[in-house]
Design a binder for these strands. Structure first.
Lengths: 235, 235
DNA sequence: AAGTGGTCTAGACCACGAC
DNA sequence: TCGTGGTCTAGACCACTTC
């Protein structure tokens, strides 16, 4: 009825488009039930697997919700779950300020689940955009004896990459806590900004397979020059 | 070979688990190619569609990457894309401070793509956690004549919901800009906090089908009592 | 030509909900 | 019992990459 087999778009995608456009233009309203899979198969002349694959796209995007035995229903698109792309690098240039092996401060030891005073690698980086300092980035990871650290590897590396290289563990999960805070004296000096200025603070922790923290870091972001953006999961 | 048909977990899920555990324990290393779909079918004694469905889970989570004609390869899990659940409500209680129809201030008119001075609905809310004010929430949406606003609807409504009810447009996309800022006098009074204190500022804009902005808002978050959390897309 | 991933089918069977 | 979504199959065909 509606699906063109000659199109470059696959059939399942066309099904998703057809239904989502009916939602967007109001033909299908939130709360209402859409035609059953069997009906959609007949209507679009495609197989059940194809219909289901199309629907699954819209389900994931939050446009639809289905429950076994009842049917598939239109829901409001999920605009509360948003994706933030937390990549400090990209267009920024990077300058490595220092790399040290130090005894873990209390707060870091707690975060990493290690003994206070255990040795950790502590790196400081400054990230620039067009020669202006934007982000002051500090990372901590457990120090493993006999694993030398190459400064060249650190300058542009993100936390997960450093963990993989220097602890030889593949991080598989990451958490980010987003806060606001006032700049302290040292941070202000590094970021060329006034002390006490409000800045974004991004605290990242990465975890290994066993849910053990294997690295953490904080990024202090000059708030006039950098903002985080998040977007709802689109279709 | 590995898949139990009696398990409560569907076969495709077991395939995903089997492969992801091989990645996590290092048996399959980033960069390396995994067995072809045909081989996996033979190994696990399941059909191609089932294998592919399992793989697609890991592809979406960033563990795998496949390219037509070449193969499917292990990649580092994507830890840069993180999901932040931006729901102000939930366990918070809400108090509506005011609802007004006002001429749009310059900044809001620009955000909403309307003429400066056009009428907008302006709502102010205060959100509490255990009787402490946490978030000062302000919203703006175009005023539509003849669409009365029920205060009861606003007290707990989020922006997309308000837009849907009062402009009769279903918002399908949302953007969030996350900043840090110092509290001004009015905000400090409302949040019972000192003026100049650093706070998180969440600026949300919601869009209609045609990518037209149909509402915006800002949430000022008491930073000692509230932090945003984001997590990497897990499997 | 051979091997890879990508799409699609027609139908089977199951689990669940409403009647 | 019937209609719904959820899983799975065996095989077909296509598009792309490599040799």
């Amino acid at each position: 009825m509606e699906i063109s087999k000659k199109s470059f778009k696959p059939a399942y995608y066309q099904v998703a488009e057809a239904i989502s456009s009916k939602i967007k233009n109001g033909e299908l309203k939130p709360g209402s039930m859409i035609p059953s899979e069997a009906q959609l198969c007949a209507q679009y002349k495609v197989s059940k697997m194809t219909v289901r694959r199309g629907l699954s796209i819209l389900i994931e995007a939050g446009y639809l919700q289905s429950s076994q035995g009842k049917g598939t229903f239109v829901s409001r698109p999920n605009l509360e779950e948003m994706v933030v792309n937390f990549s400090l690098a990209g267009k920024l240039t990077s300058k490595l300020l220092s790399v040290e092996v130090i005894p873990a401060p209390e707060s870091i030891a707690r975060k990493l689940g290690i003994d206070r005073g255990s040795k950790v690698i502590y790196t400081k980086r400054l990230l620039f955009y067009e020669n202006e300092p934007i982000i002051y980035d500090q990372k901590y990871l457990p120090y493993v004896k006999g694993k030398p650290i190459l400064e060249a590897d650190i300058e542009y590396a993100e936390l997960p990459e450093m963990v993989e290289k220097h602890i030889d563990i593949l991080p598989i999960r990451s958490e980010l806590v987003i806060k606001a805070r006032a700049l302290n004296k040292e941070e202000a000096r590094v970021l060329e900004e006034e002390e006490g200025k409000a800045v974004l603070l991004l605290e990242q922790t990465v975890y290994s397979q066993n849910n053990k923290p294997v690295g953490c870091g904080q990024a202090i972001c000059h708030s006039d020059r950098y903002t985080l953006k998040a977007v709802s999961h689109p279709f």
